[in-house]
Design a protein around this nucleic acid. Structure first.
Lengths: 222, 222
DNA sequence: GCCAGTATAGGAACACGTTCTAGTCGCGCG
DNA sequence: CGCGCGACTAGAACGTGTTCCTATACTGGC
């Protein structure tokens, strides 16, 4: 089963999706949603996946349990949505800086290492978000797709020479070859696997970084 | 979080590992372990991850729930152990055949596709095993390591020219360069990500195969 | 064959994700 | 103003993974 590609929002998406910020009518509702995500973030940061308990999130966000479930249909949706919000921030931040490096490989490594370092500074949080991402099933496809797009966007932007067209819109991949996109996806895969290995204590931060760098150099030999 | 189990065990088990076949004294115990894994396999095959319920496994295997937990300290351990057993069978089967293909890339693709096809023939089973693998935390490191070794072994064997030394022992990687091993690991990463995407309904079998093939060709340009 | 100690059976109890029910609040509309 | 309706609150209830407890079956040492 494949999900449709970019329904580009606006259309009432079929089943049990998380409520996005734009779908919420009142300011009070948008603020409730923010409070919930903030509570999720705070709990995850302190105690990781297992500390993000739905009752605890509801209490911290000062909403009833039922309300929490109205906004996010499951713990996984909740955590992946929190991850998406972080990625949006991260992606926006990268959009503001010059990415250093002569070659595509150097620039990609710079971006990946920066992102990874950010995540490794908050191990519990990263554990929670990664576990959720890995455990997600098809019902979370929408949210996952958002995250995937952001990641691919960051990578392909790093692969492009600095200041090339298409920088503004993260979804604009027009001047990239199929091979570029394929490479970006493979790097994303490796990154995810490395993250999982790190999160589950099967490799150290240093190993993760080294593995990632190796993979990028194998893929982007200029 | 799975913490240390009660230490009243006859055999000194390091932390909270699954009991391996060799650690079990009596034939009756080894047979119990097999029954448990068989039951797990059967339930997973029929109904996937959620159908593998500990009470159901215990009943099907005709052991008490407490006994099940003595053999496998969690559902995740149980499923990853089942996965390891399958991989052992798969790896052994591959060891018996000539791997066709002129180049390393062709041989690796042949192996990956064969394995993937096998998994896709049993979607529910694959879903259960993959979800467990992805959800595993550090306490399952031992079992996960086993699986990782088997996968790397299959891949590096395919990368070697046919009939080269080291074929007998899956752990013997002496005649491979560091780069070879790194490539095998990257391919393993991509395979895992692709499997997750397929299992969670985010990509089709065909897309999974194509992505894998692209990745292998990017990495093994002969 | 008997004893001590361990493994197993059987099942209650607990934790947390999820669902459901009843009641309350706020608000636009006749 | 009173009504209806959707969103919210509070909390009970349920399912499944996990733990715990007690009685029984087994096994190795004497």
């Amino acid at each position: 089963m494949v999900q449709g590609h970019d329904p580009t929002l606006g259309v009432p998406v079929s089943t049990a999706n998380s409520l996005t910020a734009d779908e919420l009518g009142s300011a009070a509702q948008r603020e409730r949603r923010q409070r919930i995500l903030d509570a999720t973030y705070a709990l995850a940061r302190e105690g990781g996946f297992e500390a993000v308990q739905m009752r605890a999130v509801a209490e911290e966000a000062e909403v009833a349990l039922g309300t929490l479930y109205r906004y996010f249909p499951s713990k996984i949706h909740l955590l992946v949505s929190a991850l998406a919000r972080e990625f949006e921030r991260s992606e926006a931040a990268f959009r503001e800086v010059e990415i250093p490096g002569e070659t595509a490989a150097e620039r990609v490594i710079w971006v990946m290492k920066g992102t990874t370092r950010g995540l490794q500074g908050d191990p519990k949080l990263t554990e929670a978000l990664t576990r959720a991402f890995m455990f997600a099933d098809a019902s979370v496809a929408q949210e996952i797709h958002t995250v995937g797009m952001l990641l691919t966007s960051m990578l392909t932007r790093a692969m492009r020479p600095e200041g090339s067209p298409g920088d503004a819109d993260p979804a604009d991949l027009t001047d990239l070859t199929d091979e570029d996109v394929a490479i970006a996806r493979v790097i994303g895969d490796v990154w995810l696997s490395a993250l999982v290995a790190w999160v589950t204590g099967r490799s150290t931060a240093a190993q993760t970084g080294a593995h990632l760098e190796t993979a990028v150099r194998l893929l982007l030999r200029d």
